[in-house]
């Protein structure tokens, strides 16, 4: 695939894709080669030319029936094998459905036992944004106004997705496959130990007028940044006022972007672009939250 593949799931899909692509290129070259060779070599030379009247060749035909059959059956087993490696799919003998009706406790339990998970985020799909609710952390966030899903690096994150209106689909290509989010059902997507970085995906089931704007921006940050972001977000949602000078700039530094500076401040980085007073205030504030 042509996007960076950063999770175990995406890497597994990518290696299956690469094997298939290699076989596809071989078949492509053989077929196109034969077509071009035949089209050039067997052009009519004179008007009354009568070629040998060849009605077929059983051995050849069996050959190009059996060999492709062998290839696709091999690809079938490779696919089944890859499928069993993906997060939360269970085993081939006992597969797990990552979609179930809301309130189906047995299915829910199987999902919870399917994979060890560090962070669980409930995601609501709506026309035309995603709402994020961090269960343990008690924080809410949304994809509106370019909002990012903030998750910690190296941790396994599970998204518990629901739709509040029409079908949506969660897809961040760098993390692997996509999944429909249906009204009345729960869909589960794992983000398996992603590295730090910025990833963009978007809703992948046509959902109406602004479907094209339903982006999912994901920012994978260090644990320190993540913890700080959670605390700041919690403080914001708990109603803690942002003070120290210009209220608007304060709000921007402390809440929306506060986590961006936390790591830098902890490391003593001088190039944060913040003024000395702002750094001092922010450090004090972060410390007060610990």
């Amino acid at each position: 695939m042509l996007v960076p593949t950063v999770t175990a799931d995406a890497i597994a899909i990518n290696s299956l894709y690469s094997i298939t692509l290699f076989l596809a290129v071989v078949v492509f070259i053989i077929v196109q080669g034969l077509i071009i060779y035949a089209a050039v070599k067997f052009k009519r030379k004179h008007a009354d030319e009568i070629p040998y009247q060849d009605h077929g060749n059983m051995k050849l035909e069996l050959f190009w029936t059996v060999v492709p059959a062998f290839i696709v059956i091999m690809l079938f087993f490779l696919s089944a094998n890859t499928l069993a490696q993906l997060s939360g799919t269970g085993t081939t003998a006992s597969p797990i459905n990552n979609v179930h009706k809301v309130g189906d406790e047995n299915a829910r339990r199987r999902i919870e036992e399917a994979k060890r998970t560090d962070v669980v985020i409930e995601v609501d799909g709506r026309q035309w944004f995603w709402q994020y609710k961090y269960i343990k952390e008690g924080v809410r966030h949304s994809s509106q106004d370019n909002g990012e899903l903030i998750i910690p690096e190296g941790k396994t994150v599970r998204l518990d997705l629901q739709s509040r209106d029409v079908l949506h689909a969660w897809w961040v290509p760098s993390f692997g496959g996509n999944l429909y989010v249906n009204p009345g059902e729960m869909s589960y997507v794992w983000i398996d130990r992603p590295p730090k970085g910025y990833y963009i995906g978007q809703c992948n089931a046509y959902c109406g007028l602004q479907h094209a704007q339903m982006l999912s921006r994901v920012k994978v940050v260090s644990q320190v940044e993540y913890d700080t972001w959670v605390k700041l977000k919690k403080a914001e949602q708990g109603g803690v006022a942002t003070e120290n000078g210009d209220a608007q700039r304060g709000a921007q530094i402390y809440v929306d972007g506060g986590y961006k500076y936390a790591d830098a401040i902890a490391k003593g980085d001088k190039n944060t672009g913040l003024q000395a007073q702002e750094i001092a205030d922010l450090s004090a504030y972060i410390n007060s939250l610990k």
């Binding site: 597994a12 899909i13 299956l16 696709v72 696919s79 290509p173 496959g177 996509n178 089931a205 046509y206």
Partner: peptide, 20 residues
């Protein structure tokens, strides 16, 4: 070419990635 890429999309893991 359409047929070959159909095989890609018939494979569940690749289809999950490239669906839609």
């Amino acid at each position: 070419i359409g047929g070959i890429t159909g095989v890609f999309l018939g494979m569940i893991p690749i289809d999950q990635q490239l669906h839609n």
